[in-house]
Structure formats: structure tokens, C-alpha cells
Amino acid sequence: MSELVKVEHLHKEFGKNVVLKDINLSVEKGEVVVIIGPSGCGKSTFLRCLNGLEGIEGGIVYVDGLPVEPESKDIYKIRQKIGMVFQYYELFPHKTVIENIILSPMKVQKRNRDDAVREAIELLDKVGLADKKDYYPRQLSGGQKQRVAIVRALIMHPDVLLFDEVTAALDPEMVHEVLQTMLELAKNGSTMIIVTHEMAFAKAVADRIVFFDQGDIVEETTDVKGFFEEPSTERAKKFLKTFAYE
């Protein structure tokens, strides 16, 4: 079984408000799945259900064959398999870049400091930020912070990476550097689930497009190019139109 993430009949509600209804999705190892859809359609909530940051009311999520249950004892082990990058970076403001990155390898995986630092610098070097290792997050630009956040997720060697609108808070000129980093990861075979509003990027990086609307998967296709030229559902068509100016 090469299915890394498997979601079966996921149902999620906040009080009476149903945000996700009967979602089924599997993601294979090495696959890049891009989730798009209008704001408030449940994309971000869906990602948060995958690593148990949100509890679910029905169905089940498996990661690497293990069920994700927020209240179980295994959740901490499962979360190590799932890296997550957030819209507003969420670096720890009281720690330097290098401390941000090595904290979990040291405390969670009990790796020794030298080893963690060495790998952290290697990874920082790949995203062009090795010289910023002793800076505090506040001294970095948004794009730099987001690349540090990606490194912080990568150093845990997760099986799958979740990206939750990671460029939505960035200035346009910084979007590129972050997306470039993500493209590299995709090329190197990382399994990624990406929520984004960057359509050109989605087109370039996706192996599969999943279109969410009103808590439902409306369209799902591996014909990425075809989807952007001529989606098969009316709702997807309408959504894509909002990005075009004619």
C-alpha cells in the first residue's frame, strides 16, 4: 500500500455548522495534491484534520496506516510524520532561527544538538538562509520567515508536508521565493498537500487538483492542465473565472 494519507467519510462540524461532509481522499507517496476552492469552503479545516489539530465528528483519517485521533497517545508520534507550514509562519518569536529549527529534533526526537544544528544549517543553506541562523524571526522578511518555517518542518523528516495558504500573507515579490522552495521539494519527491490561491503555481506543481466547495470535493482530477483549461463542473468554472480579467 503506497497510500500515505487516506481519508474516509470525513465529517466535520462546528456546532450546527457542517464544514466538511463525507470527504474521501487518498494521497500516495511522492504525490503533490493541490487543494483549491473559494474562501470558507473548508480547505484549511481539512488540512488541520489531517494532523489532528481539529477533531472530527465522523469518518477516519489514516496517515501511514495509523489512525489520526487528537486524544490518543499516538498522536504525538503521528504528527512527527506530518509537517505543517502555516499562513502566518508561526515561528517562535522568542527563539532564533536555528533554535526554532532544532527545538523539535532535540526535544521530540531526542537527537543530539550537534547533529540537529548540522542538519539545520544544511537545510538553511538549501533555502539560502544559512547566514540568518542567529537572527530572530522579527528580523526577517515574510518570505524568509516562511522558508525557515519550511526548514523547521523538514528537519523532522516528515512523510508528508501540509501547506496552508503559505503565501497568502506575503508581498508579491516574496511569494516567488517561497514557491520556488516548494517546487524544489516537489521535484525531489516529497509528498505534499497544498492549499493555495496561486493558480499558476498550482498548475506547475500539482500531480492532482482537488477542488473544494462548500465542504465538499466537487472535482478531482490528475489532468491538471485540462482542469485549468476546461474544468468539468460548473462550480469550478465559475471559481476559475474569478481569477481571469477580460
Partner: peptide, 28 residues
Amino acid sequence: KIQHESALSLGMTKRQVFFYIILPQAFS
């Protein structure tokens, strides 16, 4: 709250999140 979540997403336990991430920030 999302600081808490970003630490959890790195595999930290609630106790680790409290002592390494939340308390130092709350203290300052």
C-alpha cells in the same frame, strides 16, 4: 492559539509546548 498548534504540529507534547513555547512568551 496557533503558536500552540504550530508547536503541536512539530510533534511536541502539551507539556513541552507549555514549557518551551508558551510560558517563556507569556512570561515576557
